[in-house]
């Protein structure tokens, strides 16, 4: 199934196990027991095909999001207005490449192949977070992406540190540490800008206005419209519902916005004493649908840039492969010569 869906060749532990005469029902029981005890599933453990498929899809999407997510901010590295900001941003975007690598590796522990996942991305067969399809017209966007987008990512990913699949959970621990650093840097940029000129303050408010609603959409559709959530929660891949995480993000962000001195663009936003949470307006879900289905402001540009880099780099990867093959052949030749000489002696 996964093979057909994303072009992934994979080993099916389940099939091998059956062929070896194992009782699949018993393996399934053991798997369920491991999940129930909150223990980790590791790459060599038996797992249901659906679990494997769900994880490959989720981890690949996550990896793609890191890689595509380099673009909107990466555009500002060459123009960052101070050397300090340039270094911070350069390092952040580099971290995202590192996260992508880390996550593709986690997907490979499930039998996926990085090159095939990359093909799936550039051929539009796999998705990435739709937030990265929005443009970044000013430098304030760098700060607001750090604050909102990395913040929302952290809300989503902190629970994933306890995900039932070991390699993904461990990857998330490291990724979350770096994300929180990025988020602090983003917020700190905004604090500095808010203490600057009127023009800078206006830039920050404008960026907040543009990113707020798309950031709320990062948590996915409302719970009653999220068909795959229940199963992922049963498997402990997912720990909290979309709406829970969204509420958490809003509750945490409101005081930060006050501290910063910006207005969140939602007239319905208010503290609800009874619930102990903020009430807030409903995102325009049709916009999310449009962006997911490819009709966002920058969808075409993001994927085509990734495709261009991949295609233009093909000759480099071919050269590296050819060199490695030649090297291996030369080593083998040397070994054979030595052996022959040794035998002759």
């Amino acid at each position: 199934m996964v093979g057909r869906e994303v072009g992934v060749s994979m080993t099916s532990t389940g099939t091998e196990a059956s062929a070896a005469g194992w009782d699949e029902a018993r393996l399934s029981e053991q798997f369920d027991a491991t999940i129930a005890k909150d223990q980790r599933i590791e790459p060599r453990d038996w797992m249901p095909d659906g679990y494997r498929r769900t994880l490959i899809r989720q981890i690949a999407q996550h990896a793609h999001s890191e890689i595509i997510g380099m673009q909107p901010e990466g555009d500002w590295i060459t123009r960052a207005p101070s050397l300090r900001r340039k270094a911070i941003l350069f390092a952040k975007v580099q971290d995202e490449a590192g996260h992508g690598l880390y996550l593709y590796s986690a997907a490979e522990t499930l039998g996926a192949d990085r090159a095939e996942l990359t093909d799936a991305l550039i051929e539009g067969r796999q998705k990435y977070s739709s937030i990265f399809n929005y443009p970044t017209p000013t430098f304030a966007d760098v700060g607001v992406i750090g604050w909102f987008v990395d913040g929302a990512a952290i809300c989503n990913q902190v629970p994933l540190c306890r995900c039932s699949y070991g390699p993904y959970a461990r990857a998330m621990v490291r990724v979350c540490k770096e994300e929180s650093f990025h988020q602090r840097q983003g917020y700190e940029l905004l604090l500095t800008m808010m203490r600057g000129t009127d023009g800078q303050r206006a830039m920050v408010q404008d960026a907040v206005d543009r990113w707020w609603w798309p950031s709320l959409m990062m948590f996915g559709p409302p719970d009653d419209d999220s068909p795959n959530s229940a199963r992922s929660m049963a498997w402990k891949i997912k720990r909290h519902s979309n709406d829970e995480l969204r509420q958490r993000f809003v509750d945490m962000t409101v005081p930060q916005a006050e501290k910063l001195g910006v207005t969140l663009p939602d007239p319905e936003l208010s503290w609800n004493e009874e619930r102990g949470h903020h009430d807030f307006g409903t995102p325009d879900w049709s916009e999310l649908q449009r962006v997911i289905s490819g009709d966002g402001p920058r969808n075409v540009e993001r994927v085509s840039r990734r495709r261009a880099a991949h295609e233009e780099g093909a000759w480099v990867r071919e050269a590296a492969t050819a060199h490695a093959a030649k090297q291996a052949a030369r080593t083998q030749e040397t070994a054979r010569t030595q052996k022959t000489e040794g035998a002759a002696a």
Binding site: Q71, G74, T78, F90, L101, Y104, R306, A308
Partner: peptide
């Protein structure tokens, strides 16, 4: 080197070129 960002032939090269760029910026 910053101009290579998101255009490198492989992700390992993204990381390496950025690393070198950051060293030089330092």
């Amino acid at each position: 080197l910053a101009q290579w960002c998101t255009a490198a032939p492989e992700l390992e090269e993204e990381v390496a070129l950025a690393n070198i760029g950051l060293d030089l910026l330092g």
